[in-house]
């Protein structure tokens, strides 16, 4: 009887702690949908996020210890790469696509511009292994971490043993990325009732809902599906997008629809970073849509917006910039971890 009570009590306690931990990190606003990420496979904890942060900023992940995740995903650029149209990796290699920003990843079910990867835990394998990004392998990373003066202890603090595996490295990295939550823009404060839009922003919001929202749906500002938005194909990159993955011609020139949050920090825009300003982006949508069999039906006739409407739309888009997210200390590099590394 006594044992039973203790067991039941323990069960309730564990569940409570577990749920508590689950909610702890992703304190998401109530107007956000249910996350896609399956936290049961990788329960969150502050310790994992901290360790994931160290890994994210550690160039040890690359073949010659020069490139970290943050090299192309800088916190100041909302974890994108300001001024770089195409990703810039190891040995000054240039990739074929623009490094996308990282935030609100728990709501996304496919990653990379072509959706090649449908699992956030697995995503980091791609840049770690790619010859023009980090040029390493998960086996090499695990070996380096095992030999490191600090990492084995940090893994032990989480997993109760010093064993470092590929699974643990990737899941811990995912933990940090899941913690990159952007939900404190002016738009969010309006949703929470602590701020209100200006007349211009309201006008922009209305233009947004009738012209952009079918692909860039609130509150994440993307459906995270794939679409052909009518860009002229770059003759050198000749990138067919999602078709490369699905081998289905209906997916030709389809790319992942990006979120419109934090645009102030994430230029240049589009999968190949071809536009530097939002004005150029709007010029594309209003004047330069290239027709093709896979063009998004919403864009068949282009989008018609006057100069003033464009100005209002840009004013609304500016309410999606989340400055607190950009300057948040907890997302930045943990300098003491790197300056006090013994044996370096």
């Amino acid at each position: 009887m006594k044992i039973k009570t203790i067991l039941v009590g323990l069960g309730i306690l564990c569940t409570a702690v577990y749920c508590g931990v689950k909610k702890n990190v992703l304190q998401t606003p109530e107007y956000f949908p249910v996350p896609h990420y399956n936290f049961n496979n990788n329960p969150t904890s502050e310790a994992k996020i901290k360790l994931g942060n160290n890994l994210f900023y550690d160039p040890l992940l690359s073949a010659n210890n020069t490139i970290s995740c943050a090299s192309c995903h800088s916190p100041y650029a909302s974890f994108a790469h300001t001024d770089h149209d195409l990703s810039h990796g190891i040995y000054d290699s240039i990739g074929t696509r623009n490094a996308p920003p990282l935030f609100n990843l728990a709501w996304q079910d496919r990653f990379m511009w072509d959706g090649a990867i449908d699992n956030l835990d697995a995503q980091a394998l791609a840049p770690i292994s790619h010859a023009t990004e980090m040029g390493s392998s998960i086996n090499e990373v695990v070996a380096k971490l095992k030999a490191h003066p600090k990492y084995p202890g940090l893994f032990k603090g989480i997993y109760k043993d010093t064993l470092i595996t590929g699974e643990r490295v990737l899941k811990v990295l995912a933990q940090f990325q899941l913690s990159l939550l952007s939900s404190d823009s002016k738009y969010d404060r309006v949703q929470k009732g602590t701020a209100s839009f200006t007349t211009k922003e309201i006008s922009g919001y209305n233009i947004f809902t009738s012209n952009c929202a079918s692909c860039h749906a609130e509150p994440l500002f993307s459906t995270f599906r794939f679409a052909n938005n009518g860009l002229e194909v770059d003759p050198i990159l000749n990138d067919i997008g999602r078709q490369k993955i699905t081998l289905n011609s209906r997916d030709s020139l389809h790319f992942k629809i990006p979120s419109l949050r934090n645009l102030k920090y994430t230029f240049p825009y589009m999968h190949d970073g071809r536009f530097n300003t939002l004005r150029e982006v709007l010029k594309h949508y209003t004047q330069k849509i290239k027709n093709s069999p896979t063009l998004s039906p919403e864009l068949k006739n282009g989008i018609s917006l006057t100069k003033n409407q464009q100005t209002d739309l840009i004013a609304f888009l500016a309410t999606l910039n989340d400055r607190d997210f950009i300057i948040s200390q907890k997302h930045q590099i943990n300098k003491s971890f790197f300056t006090n590394t013994e044996g370096n």
């Binding site: 791609a126 695990v142 595996t165 993955i245």
Partner: peptide
């Protein structure tokens, strides 16, 4: 045996 260090998980796609 499913750990990615087994070299059996694709890196460029899932």
């Amino acid at each position: 045996v499913l750990d990615p260090t087994s070299q059996m998980y694709w890196t460029w796609q899932n």
